[in-house]
Each structure stands twice: as C-alpha cells, then as structure tokens.
C-alpha cells in the first residue's frame, strides 16, 4: 500500500539523494579539517533546536539552524584556540543539547510521541515537503559552487592549516564557512534521518572514502556518491522491512564503513607495518 504513495516516494527518493550527497561532500571537509567534534555537537544542537520548534509550533528548520549555529559559535572559537580539549567540550555540549531536546519534546502540547516529535527523533520520509526539496536542491547547488570556487584554499587547509597560514592564506573564514555549511546541511537533512543519528552520515561516507583513495580530488567526488548511495539503500531497506528510515540509513552506512575498514588497503598496510597510530 505504501508503494501507492508515488509522490511521497518520489520526494523521499530525491531528498535522500540530495541529503546523502551533501552530507558525503561536507563530511570530507569536516573530517579532514578535524572539525568532527564541532560537527557532532552541532548536529545535536540542531536536534535540540528542532525539538524546540516542534514544542513552540515554530518552523523546526529555523530553530534547528539557530541552535546549530549557536553551538558552532559557542564552541568553535574555544576549539579553534585549543583552550579546552575538544573532547571535553563535546562531553559537555552533547548531554546539554540532549537534555534540552528532551525537555522541549516533553513540552509539546500533546505529550507523547506525536508524529512530529518522532520525525525529529528518528526521521521520516512522509514529512518531506516540496519546500524541503527546494531547500535541499538550493543547498546542493550552493555547496558544489562553494567547494568549486574555494577548492584551492580548502585543499591547503585540509592538508595543514598552519602551513596554509604560513603561505599567507587567511584560513579562518574558510574553516567557519565549512562549520556553517555543515550546520545548514545537518539542519536540512534532519527531517529525513532524525537528530539522534544524523552525525553518522557526515562522518561515515568521508571516512569510508578516505580509506581507499590517495588523491583528494577523487575523495571529494566519491564520498558524496557513497553518501547518496547509502541514503537511497537505507530508504529501500526501510520500505521493505517497514522500519524507521533514519535507522536503516545509518545501519547501511555503518555496514559500508565496517566493510571498507576490512578491505581498506591503507589499514592493511598500517597493520603490516605495525605502526597503527
């Protein structure tokens, strides 16, 4: 019967492709610029924000974005200056955002797992609207354009931020641009995957790809493709077994990452050399 919902399915499929591609793309920069802790904190910030949106009947996209940016601007400069260890920051911010999210969800007028609350928690394909698709498509075009036009700087910063500075590149705007972009991508993909799981989709495709390729240009093309392939496969699995779509996407993504680790030429070589970091 769900197969009859042709329009919903079509929207879900397009959303999965766009969101998967975007997260796979932005993940490369997040992972290589060592922004994982910030990305992780931001995704739970977006989750708390979206929960607030649901509770107050505001647009969860707006509140999610506000919380993600708030988190980024709070912890970005701290992490930047290394005044506190990033792990310490994450350990404080993660539970705080979670606590806020659950308080907000409890404040929702009809307490309990209304469909909107459930969407924020573990994602839903039924909730994807045409507007969401327009946002995702715009984001897709912007992200590709940004990466294309600032590739030189991003490439140098990913290699080594201090060396990039030593060559006269102003690195801060580019790093903050990536943080901001990942916040936006996370917020706009939240509906699909849910706030509890979304970070896996930033991290997994990029880490999977980085196991295999020795040329950054290949990595930045293949990772978004892996991202899109996993979201689409996750969608199909969820339809076949009638399971939450976010969970299925993350499970597929984790399996892909695990298989990549087993097959990875880089990891095998490291183990042979016995100089695992």
């Amino acid at each position: 019967m769900i197969w009859l919902e042709y329009v919903i399915m079509q929207r879900a499929l397009i959303a999965c492709i766009l969101a998967g591609f975007l997260m796979g793309l932005i993940g490369v920069f997040v992972v290589r610029m060592r922004l994982s802790a910030i990305g992780y904190s931001m995704s739970h910030g977006a989750f708390a924000g979206a929960a607030l949106g649901v509770a107050t009947a505001m647009d969860p996209l707006v509140t999610g974005l506000a919380f993600a940016s708030g988190t980024a601007f709070l912890i970005g400069p701290i992490a930047d200056k290394a005044r506190l260890h990033v792990d310490t920051i994450t350990s404080i911010v993660f539970p705080l955002n979670m606590a806020l999210a659950f308080v907000f969800l409890t404040l929702t007028p009809e307490i309990g797992l209304t469909s909107q609350v459930a969407n924020v928690l573990w994602g839903s394909i039924i909730s994807v609207t045409n507007n969401d698709l327009v946002y995702l498509a715009t984001l897709f075009a912007s992200a590709v354009a940004i990466v294309y036009f600032t590739w030189k700087e991003l490439f140098a910063i990913m290699f080594n931020r201090k060396l990039a500075e030593a060559d006269g590149i102003r690195t801060k705007p580019f790093v903050y641009m990536i943080i901001l972009l990942s916040g936006v991508v996370i917020t706009f993909s939240l509906k699909l995957v849910g706030g509890l799981l979304i970070y896996a989709l930033i991290f997994n495709p990029a880490s999977t790809t980085l196991q295999f390729f020795e040329d950054m240009r290949t990595v930045v093309i293949v990772s978004p493709l892996i991202g899109a392939a996993t979201t689409v496969s996750g969608l199909l699995v969820s339809l076949v077994f009638d399971l939450p779509v976010g969970s299925c996407i993350v499970i597929v993504s984790t399996i892909v990452f695990a298989v990549a680790l087993l097959l990875s030429p880089k990891r095998r070589r490291k183990e042979e050399n016995g100089n695992e970091k």
């Binding site: 990039a164 006269g168 020795e214 950054m216």
Partner: peptide
C-alpha cells in the same frame, strides 16, 4: 602520515596558493 590523500606535487604546488589569490 601514510594514507593522507596528497601527492608530493600537490604539496609543492600548494606553497604558491597564498600568492595566487582568492578565486584564482
């Protein structure tokens, strides 16, 4: 570290990136 996706030539050329200027 082994496994980082940059060729030696990438690394050498990167030295000029600051001089080349934004968007070039």
């Amino acid at each position: 570290k082994p496994g980082e996706p940059y060729t030696a030539f990438d690394v050498v050329l990167m030295g000029c990136y600051g001089q080349i200027g934004f968007l070039n």
